[in-house]
Amino acid sequence: MNFQYFRLLLTTLLLACTCGPALFAQVFAPLGAQWTYFNFVTEGNGYLPVAYVYTVNKDTVVDGWDSRIIQLREVYADGRESEEGVRQEVVHTAGDSVYVYVKDSFRLIFDYSAGVGDTVRVVDEPFRGFFMPASNLIISDFAYRIDSVQLRLVGKDSLRVQYVSYLRDVDREIDQWGFQGIIDLYDSVPGQILESVGGLGHETMLGFTNAISYIMPFTPGRLTCYSDSLRDYHLLGVDCDSVLTEYRLRTSLPALAIDDAVGIYPNPFRGEVRFTASSVPLRRVEVRDVAGRVMYTREGSALDRLELGVLAPGVYFFVLTDGAGRQSVVRGVRE
């Protein structure tokens, strides 16, 4: 009997040692956590890259709930930070459930244990939305349905991914806060919520909507990096800290003139990409990463399609030059 008890105790300890890191990995928004999303803002006649950086560096107590403060900073690629300063939201975590403070109470926003067919109704009445200045538009509600759940290997962790959609029919003019955006709707790609991390798709961490004017059709806006004291996820193969350092060291950067008349497909891509441009054939293609570094160059004829599977996953800019010397910039994502 004593031997069996000892064996059971030893097995329990071994399981604890093996599973401990995975259990700790389930915590949402621990102190020191940082999320980085890249996107664009309008700047003159073009678009300037911007990083949305969310950090957790404060504990607080709200209505008796132990909570943490998530702060947002916007860092532009020309070295500036948003004139709106730091914006913040308050969240509380209890097991697989995450609550966010809206108006005057905490509302459930993530339930990582929820299954197919379950719904999460965060806010029924109109509200301002998360991390938004008080002057911005009011969104009607925030509710979503879980359509499927899969496991995804992220770093060394196997995490649940919930694929979600709106509860009601929507078109391009969405007035409902949620987890889908223009790109997702066009490509029938569902919103995605990663266990212990948050929203992955065309939205920021606590949900977004394409009714916000600065989210453009050509900016997928996927979560690029997440890190805390135990984890360091590079979801698109980009070293976000290095890119942010380059952003902050710059004193100026001309805005990219994105040409909506030129297309790249598929987008996101994995291997071969094709371009749709004017009737004048392309003569040069230059591929740059989010830090502006040239990663691939090709000149000559027959450049309407290229094999770019050698590129690491991430966000890239294609500088296309045609035979008449005209240049266009297209943004693409390597999955």
Score class of each variant (00 low, 15 high):
154 V>S: 04
30 P>R: 04
262 V>H: 06
5 Y>I: 15
63 D>L: 13
279 S>G: 05
177 W>E: 05
144 Y>W: 01
110 F>L: 03
35 W>D: 11
112 Y>P: 07
16 A>P: 03
171 D>A: 15
304 D>S: 11
162 Q>R: 10
142 F>Y: 14
281 P>R: 10
212 I>L: 14
103 K>C: 11
318 F>I: 03
59 D>V: 10
195 E>N: 02
192 Q>T: 02
88 Q>I: 04
244 L>F: 09
128 R>W: 08
286 E>N: 04
107 R>P: 02
72 L>K: 09
64 G>R: 10
277 A>D: 13
24 F>D: 12
63 D>M: 13
232 D>A: 15
15 L>N: 11
324 A>D: 01
44 G>V: 13
237 G>C: 13
27 V>G: 06
218 F>M: 04
224 T>D: 10
139 I>N: 01
242 S>Q: 12
231 R>F: 08
276 T>Q: 06
169 D>P: 12
163 Y>W: 11
314 G>D: 00
142 F>M: 15
289 D>M: 08
117 G>L: 02
146 I>R: 06
111 D>H: 14
162 Q>M: 14
20 G>P: 11
165 S>R: 07
32 G>E: 09
95 G>V: 02
184 D>I: 03
283 R>S: 15
205 M>G: 00
286 E>C: 05
41 V>R: 11
242 S>W: 05
194 L>I: 12
148 S>W: 10
171 D>C: 12
51 A>H: 06
119 T>A: 14
289 D>I: 02
21 P>S: 06
209 T>G: 07
178 G>K: 02
43 E>Q: 14
168 R>D: 08
42 T>D: 05
117 G>I: 00
326 R>F: 11
105 S>T: 14
289 D>C: 05
42 T>A: 10
108 L>H: 09
308 L>S: 00
14 L>G: 04
321 T>K: 06
91 V>Y: 07
143 A>D: 09
226 Y>T: 12
176 Q>G: 03
137 L>V: 03
102 V>Y: 03
113 S>A: 15
139 I>W: 02
143 A>S: 09
70 I>V: 07
258 I>D: 01
214 Y>A: 00
56 V>M: 01
137 L>D: 08
5 Y>D: 15
267 N>V: 01
138 I>L: 09
137 L>C: 01
141 D>P: 03
17 C>Y: 15
45 N>H: 15
179 F>M: 13
226 Y>K: 09
156 K>P: 00
266 P>C: 10
109 I>H: 04
45 N>V: 11
242 S>A: 14
34 Q>A: 11
258 I>P: 00
186 Y>W: 12
298 R>K: 14
302 A>N: 10
51 A>L: 05
103 K>N: 10
82 S>P: 06
